[in-house]
Amino acid sequence: MSPTRQVQDPAKRAMLLTALYIAQEQYGHLSEEAIQRVSARLGLSPTEVLSTASFYTLYNRQPSARYRIQVCAGLSCHLCDGAESLERQVRQKLGLAEGQDRTKDGRFSVETVECLAACDTAPNLRINDELFARLSPEATDALLDRLMKE
């Protein structure tokens, strides 16, 4: 091993994923400042922290919308009229143009995710931390109506 390489404390390093979750919770997203703080606390370089954070999809570098809608694009949901057709319906309802993934007021964002391990209740989508299952077009409509009124 090269002598210039800083020896890391493995126990500290192992805290990184948890620390990133805590920072994300506190700052709303992984801002520059959040990354700086995590690196200072764990004795890692900001580049190292960023490199690890960017590997994982659940860490956000940008602030999230109030309602973050994640449509399952997995095969089972796709076979049950979910995935693309569900996404299309959601986007239409929210008035999103092609290539636009956030409403102008910043309240809703739409993205697709891979299998949520709930294929028995397909089609599924998630809003923030909550799973909405067995979504018929009518149920999706009602769900979005409710959120849009809030």
Partner: peptide, 8 residues
Amino acid sequence: DEGEPGTF
């Protein structure tokens, strides 16, 4: 970590 599509 169950993530293989179709597995629940």
